[in-house]
Measured scan of single mutants.
Amino acid sequence: LSCHYCHSLFSGKPEVLDWQDQVFQFCCRDCCEDFKRLR
């Protein structure tokens, strides 16, 4: 899998964000929080 925010590859459990009828996967909570802050 690749992170939607930083595009790094990861194999662990992703942080998942269901936002505006789309599902995004992130490598860590920090990337998820940064993505939400920018949107």
Rank of each mutant, 00 (worst) to 15 (best):
K13P: 10
R29F: 12
D34P: 03
W19M: 15
H7K: 10
L38V: 09
G12C: 04
F10H: 08
H7F: 13
Q25I: 06
E15F: 08
V23H: 12
E15P: 01
C31G: 01
C27D: 03
C32I: 06
S8T: 14
C27S: 00
F35R: 01
C32S: 04
S11W: 02
C31M: 01
C6D: 00
V16D: 01
W19S: 15
S11V: 03
D21Q: 10
D18H: 07
L17T: 07
D21V: 03
V23Y: 05
L1C: 09
G12F: 03
F10P: 08
K13Q: 10
K36D: 06
Q20P: 13
L38Y: 08
D21E: 06
F24D: 03
D21L: 05
H7C: 11
S2N: 15
W19K: 13
F24H: 11
L9E: 08
Q20T: 12
D34Q: 06
S8P: 00
D34I: 05
S11G: 05
S8G: 14
L9A: 11
H4E: 13
C6Q: 00
E33K: 03
H4A: 14
R39S: 15
S2M: 14
K36R: 07
L38S: 10
L1A: 09
P14T: 03
R29Y: 14
C31Q: 01
C32V: 10
D21I: 05
F26K: 02
Y5V: 12
D21A: 07
L17V: 08
F24L: 13
Q20A: 14
F26G: 02
D34G: 10
S2P: 03
F24Q: 08
F10A: 03
F10W: 04
G12A: 09
C32R: 05
V23R: 15
Y5H: 07
L9R: 09
F24C: 12
Q20W: 09
Y5A: 14
R29K: 09
Q20M: 15
G12H: 05
E15W: 08
F35Q: 03
G12R: 05
C6F: 00
H4N: 14
K13S: 07
R39E: 05
H7I: 11
K36A: 07
L38P: 10
G12D: 04
D18R: 13
L1F: 14
S11E: 04
F35L: 01
F24T: 08
Q20S: 14
L17Q: 09
V23M: 15
E33S: 04
G12Y: 01
C6Y: 01
C28P: 01
G12V: 04
H7M: 06
P14G: 04
Y5K: 15
Y5N: 10
C3N: 00
F10G: 03
C6L: 00
R29V: 13
V16C: 09
G12T: 10
H7P: 03
Q25R: 11
H4R: 12
Q22N: 14
D18G: 06
H4Y: 12
Y5W: 12
S11C: 02
Q25M: 13
F35D: 02
Y5M: 15
C27I: 01
W19A: 13
S2L: 11
Y5R: 13
P14F: 03
V23G: 09
F26T: 02
C3D: 00
D18C: 06
R29Q: 11
V23K: 14
L9Y: 06
D21G: 06
E33C: 05
F24K: 11
E15I: 11
Q22K: 07
V23L: 13
S8E: 13
Q20E: 15
K13W: 02
R39L: 04
K36C: 04
V16H: 08
H7Y: 12
D34Y: 12
Q22M: 15
C32L: 08
D30K: 12
Q25C: 07
K13L: 08
C32W: 03
D30H: 07
C28W: 00
Q25H: 12
L17E: 05
Q20G: 15
L17S: 04
V16G: 04
D21W: 04
V23A: 10
F26D: 01
H4L: 08
D34R: 06
H4D: 12
D34V: 07
D18P: 14
F26Q: 02
P14K: 01
P14D: 04
L17C: 07
C28M: 12
K36S: 08
H7D: 14
E33W: 04
R37A: 10
H4M: 14
C31Y: 00
C32N: 04
C28T: 12
C28H: 07
H7G: 12
H4G: 15
F35M: 07
S11M: 03
V23D: 06
C6H: 01
K13M: 02
C28I: 01
K13V: 05
L1R: 02
F10Q: 01
L9T: 11
K36P: 01
S8A: 15
L17N: 02
D21Y: 03
V23F: 11
F24A: 09
G12K: 08
R39C: 14
F26A: 02
C32F: 04
C3V: 00
G12E: 10
L1S: 04
R39G: 15
P14M: 05
C32D: 02
V23P: 11
Q22D: 15
W19D: 08
V16W: 04
S8D: 11
E33N: 08
W19T: 15
G12M: 05
K13H: 08
F35A: 07
L1N: 14
E15Q: 06
S8H: 13
